[in-house]
Design a protein around this nucleic acid. Structure first.
Lengths: 181, 181
DNA sequence: CTGTTGGTAGACCGCTCAGTATACTTTTGT
DNA sequence: ACAAAAGTATACTGAGCGGTCTACCAACAG
């Protein structure tokens, strides 16, 4: 992997996540990263290809962070606790690996790209599936009902943290799952 | 209210919701609505003002639809049933008043406009508050815990319907609340 | 009958966009 | 040591953007 290529991905991810993909132009990414335009088009054939690379990078970062957050859990309720405490840390900018919170990059990107069959929209869907499967790995047995509950609460908590500016949901989600178990 | 003004709002809402605000130009709205550019700038001083008018229109449509959906409920569980069955109808394009489902217009718009202090982002937040208060009105007593639960499940169900293409969540949310009551 | 109001049609402005082209320099593998 | 590969800097293209402007038209009220 080229160093310049990685510079471009890091800069683009930062700008895309903080301001939205359609609000950030190629020229700004070049100015901030200090890379020449020809170098960018040497590594990526189009803006879309760069976008896909940033989605992959963010997915890797997120999965790594989540995997770390869920490590060493001995019960389902502990998984739930670590998951939602992790989300709260993310929302309140205490998870430095994930950057300044501006919602879920994949939800935001899905909102910007309306064609559900595009590579970009499909990748966003795939990311959500990967997160679901990672959570499933940490639950004691294959419990689809609990898994569904956790996932829908997680998506709700993310959405309300970003749109409503309500950071209280992770704590409430833990209480909800406690009652259900 | 002028007829031309309403034509512009209706056309803009349709295009903005289906494709995203930053992906739809003024000229396209004019071409589709059949209105002259000067007429648009006679009614709205800028694109942003037109965007705010479409948000208000969508909010009115949504609140009206939800109010209709929740009418004549005699218990909290009935409210929950009608709410999530209503959401399922929306997701599966059976709520014609809400148009072809492409997620929540306010979540999508928040994703596109990154400044949380902008009028647009603030209106999106306000919409969510209005929906919450409408649901609260239909619950038998002031039950913040139940209200929070319903709201977080609702946001999760909307997000998963759009991003994950998973329409099964409304039914699962009903079961979750049933267990909790 | 005429002046105001609100509309149409479309040219135009300055700017930004994604992407290409040119000419030169640096790095690197053998 | 030197050719090939990779990077820099920058000008440019064609298209689209939001927004302004001019000129003309139709309806209607005094």
């Amino acid at each position: 992997m080229s160093k310049k290529r990685q510079q471009l991905i890091d800069t683009a991810l930062q700008l895309f996540y903080q301001r939205g993909i359609n609000s950030v132009g190629i020229n700004e990414i070049l100015a901030v990263s200090g890379v020449a335009k020809k170098t960018l088009y040497n590594h990526f054939t189009s803006k879309e290809e760069l976008v896909l690379a940033t989605l992959k990078q963010r997915n890797d970062n997120f999965i790594t962070w989540l995997d770390m957050s869920l490590k060493e859990t001995n019960s389902d309720i502990e998984v739930v606790n670590k998951l939602f405490n992790g989300l709260f840390a993310w929302f309140s900018n205490s998870a430095i690996e994930l950057g300044n919170f501006r919602g879920c990059f994949f939800i935001n990107t899905s909102a910007e790209f309306s064609d559900p069959t595009s590579n970009i929209s499909q990748y966003c869907r795939d990311h959500k599936l990967q997160v679901r499967q990672l959570i499933a790995q940490y639950l004691s047995q294959s419990n689809t009902e609990l898994l569904d509950t956790i996932c829908v609460l997680k998506e709700g908590a993310i959405s309300m943290a970003y749109v409503n500016h309500d950071l209280s949901m992770p704590a409430k989600c833990i209480k909800i799952v406690e009652k259900l178990l």
